[in-house]
Design a binder for these strands. Sequence first.
DNA 1: CAAATCCCCTGCAGGC
DNA 2: TGCCTGCAGGGGATTT
Length: 270
Amino acid sequence: MPELPEVEVTRRQLLPLLVGRRIASVVTTRPSYFFLTAPAVLRRKLPGRTVLALDRIGKYLLAGLDSGERLLLHLGMTGEIVRAGAIAADEHTHLRLRFHDTHPGVDFRDERKFGKVQLLAAGASPKRLARLGPDALRISAEQLRVASRKRRIPIKTLLLDQAVLAGVGNIYADEALYIAKVRPTRRAGGVTRAEFQRLAEAVQQVLQRAIEAGGSSISDYVQPNGSYGWYQEERRVYDREGEPCQRCGSLIRRRLLGQRSCHYCPRCQP
DNA sequence: CAAATCCCCTGCAGGC
DNA sequence: TGCCTGCAGGGGATTT
């Protein structure tokens, strides 16, 4: 399940595959929830365009084109963007880009179609981008504290709010709260300054480390070159219900928070 | 305004 | 073995 680290690893590996390439042809599946821009429009407008840049904002990728337009990509739950051939294309391969010369193409697969593709007009900033908070890699304790004031929601729910900080999802929220020794169910407005300090550091630390590890391949994430990430080997609590806490030996617990599973150590996360 | 709920989708695990 | 139910989750829309 792609969160900031998986999106960033994807971005870095896609850079040499995309930037500087001129699109020769586009193949799509039929219209669906996945396409915010109709696939017929993508097939018509993308050929001939050259990709000039590939940036990341939270969990979104943005490919800047020579027309000034930007192609927005979101991996959703099961999305994977790979070098053509790294993963066999099938009925879930919704967008395929082919380039001029002999450069390898790029395929965007997504089984559950929670991913997104949208072609943005030059200068356009859709609501979904405009509402995003600061990138999670640069979130400060003070920003978290201000966003939490008077909020009664659990601190974990706040961490998942992309308008507060962009990039954290279910796995890294649990991991960051564990590292910071803060129980996920704590009321956001009741978290102390010292805890916000630890939390901001933990968020950055866990995301940075996961990027270095190539992301987490917990359900089905793959890197653009077809490799798997290995951060799942380092996770402390996520999907480890019943296993001993590495700090105190208590058994990791799992419960539901909102509609999401939540994992924590009942002893060292007060 | 904040918070809770629902829904999009598909594969797979678990129960009987 | 096979069918059915439920769950997983990012995030926007809708409801309370």
